[in-house]
């Protein structure tokens, strides 16, 4: 049996987390190659619809990364995310999908190392959870 290679989407906000990811790259920090980064203008533009769509199409994990609370380029964008994503996770939990597949974290533009840490931890966690059961449904 081949090793399970999870597919992970990371929504990174343009002003902090994407720059943080960039910094991690420039600093040549090693991290697992399972993550597909999607650049969004603000973590609040990650609608729960996107997360649900990804999970129900068989993506193994979804990361939502934004600026730290108080540092949002749009002032209150990440407040909205901070309220939405927990509700999203609860709904997934209610229908029997492990809510650890969705993770919300804050990574600033200076935190290349934190970005690396988040990715390593999340990939390891998804590996222990195994493939998303929805993947078989969609095959």
């Amino acid at each position: 049996m081949t090793e399970f290679k999870p597919t992970i989407l990371a929504f990174c906000c343009n002003w902090c987390s994407y720059a943080g990811a960039d910094l991690a790259g420039v600093n040549r920090l090693q991290m697992p190659p399972n993550v597909h980064v999607i650049r969004v203008m603000c973590s609040a533009s990650v609608k729960p619809e996107y997360v649900f769509k990804a999970i129900s199409q068989g993506v193994d994990g979804v990361l939502v990364l934004g600026c730290h609370i108080g540092d949002c380029h749009y002032l209150t964008g990440n407040h909205r995310t901070a309220k939405r994503i927990p509700v999203t996770k609860k709904i997934l939990h209610d229908v029997g999908i492990d809510d650890r597949r969705v993770r919300l974290d804050w990574v600033s533009a200076a935190e290349g190392e934190k970005f690396q840490q988040v990715i390593i931890e999340f990939v390891a966690e998804i590996k222990t959870l195994g493939p998303n059961p929805q993947r078989e449904v969609n095959m």
């Binding site: 649900f52 509700v87 709904i91 229908v95």
Partner: peptide, 14 residues
């Protein structure tokens, strides 16, 4: 419809 249909509806009505 895919699972997302019911999940999106749940979120919008939350």
């Amino acid at each position: 419809p895919e699972l997302a249909f019911h999940l999106i509806r749940s979120f919008h009505l939350a």
